[in-house]
Design a binder for these strands. Structure first.
Lengths: 191, 191
DNA sequence: CCGCACATGTAAGACGTTACATGATTGT
DNA sequence: ACAATCATGTAACGTCTTACATGTGCGG
């Protein structure tokens, strides 16, 4: 039975396991920190994928340790499956942005409300940009992995672009006056 | 029974139905063209949501027409449900970009392969930008809806940013030489 | 009369989220 | 002693995708 191709979430777990055996908990943490910005996953999913992958021999569960920790290790089969996955054309990206949906139906949104939404979302992006900028500084300081850098720079570029977009929004959309007090067009304060 | 809050996909259907009764088929087409770039949905989903919404009275199915066309119309309840939905804080956006995942595990990707992936994805984005630019020209020409314009401009900004990112990728990542022949940094040809 | 675009739907499964249940260890 | 954090897992459900099945009407 030629087990159907890995899904990206499972594959990423195998990817992390190349760095050594890890528990589900550890994997969640690592995934959150390393790919969380463009690939989300939950605890539930992780435990499920690990169990599934164990049953087909892609990973091997070790003995339970102290707090019931159960480390999983990559098997040779798992390594091969990962290699195959990583060699495949990555699928198209998908963005799902509820704010844009609301905006698309903007003519049905009560006056002022859209301005609130926009302001709130802008703030989130501003903060995210700032945090990326901090991370970037750290990364550069640490003399680093070009791959981590590339993904981080994607985030940086993306957040900057989104902020630019927010600041260019027509006043009909943004609302003449926002509720949250916030200077109108200051680019970003980071580091 | 206080029917649990609408999901965004169903809500968008109600949104379109404000423009008049439509069949599932029509809704798919309209959604694809108007929100498809940031909110995907499939035929299956649409027919299912319509059936579900009919059963709780948010829409009303009309008599079958020629090719079995079955138009759905918004009810007052549906209108109210939509109004409530659109007045709620839109959730956070999510990006899922498999290329970034592959990139994050770039050290496991065979040499040259990454360059291929990157080139292919860059081409997709370049084309998308071009198509947005065409749409933008049309929109401006037609003297238009600020909401449609705002969402389109999001796409424009996003695609430009992504291309910028592609062109700034370190050579370790992009590969010195790509397979597909393509001038290295030309910004975009549109219209 | 044939092929294509139109049109609706079902079924099954993959994927993702949320809520719940349970307990061990560490630090205070 | 107690709270916080670590750690695993199940159950239930919601959402999305893919494949299949079926038939209509139009244009050449």
């Amino acid at each position: 039975m030629p087990t159907r191709p890995l899904n990206a979430t499972a594959a990423s777990l195998l990817g992390f396991l190349h760095e050594g055996p890890m528990t589900g908990w550890d994997l969640v943490a690592r995934a959150q920190e390393r790919i969380g910005d463009f690939w989300s996953l939950t605890r539930s999913q992780v435990y499920r994928e690990l169990a599934a992958m164990e049953s087909v021999g892609l990973v091997e569960a070790g003995a339970r340790e102290s707090r019931d920790r159960r480390p999983y290790a990559l098997t040779e089969t798992g390594r091969a499956a990962f290699a195959e996955w990583v060699d495949r054309e990555p699928g198209p990206e998908s963005i799902r942005y509820p704010l844009l949906l609301t905006l698309a139906f903007g003519s049905h949104v009560p006056a002022g409300r859209m301005a609130e939404f926009v302001a709130a979302h802008r703030a989130v992006h501003a903060e995210r940009l700032a945090s990326y900028e901090r991370a970037h500084a750290d990364l550069i300081a640490g003399g680093f992995d070009p791959y981590a850098r590339a993904t981080l720079e994607f985030g940086l570029t993306y957040e900057k672009a989104v902020l630019t977009w927010f600041d260019g929004l027509a006043s009909e959309v943004r609302g003449g006056r926002t509720f949250v007090d916030m200077p109108p067009t200051e680019p970003e304060t980071a580091t």
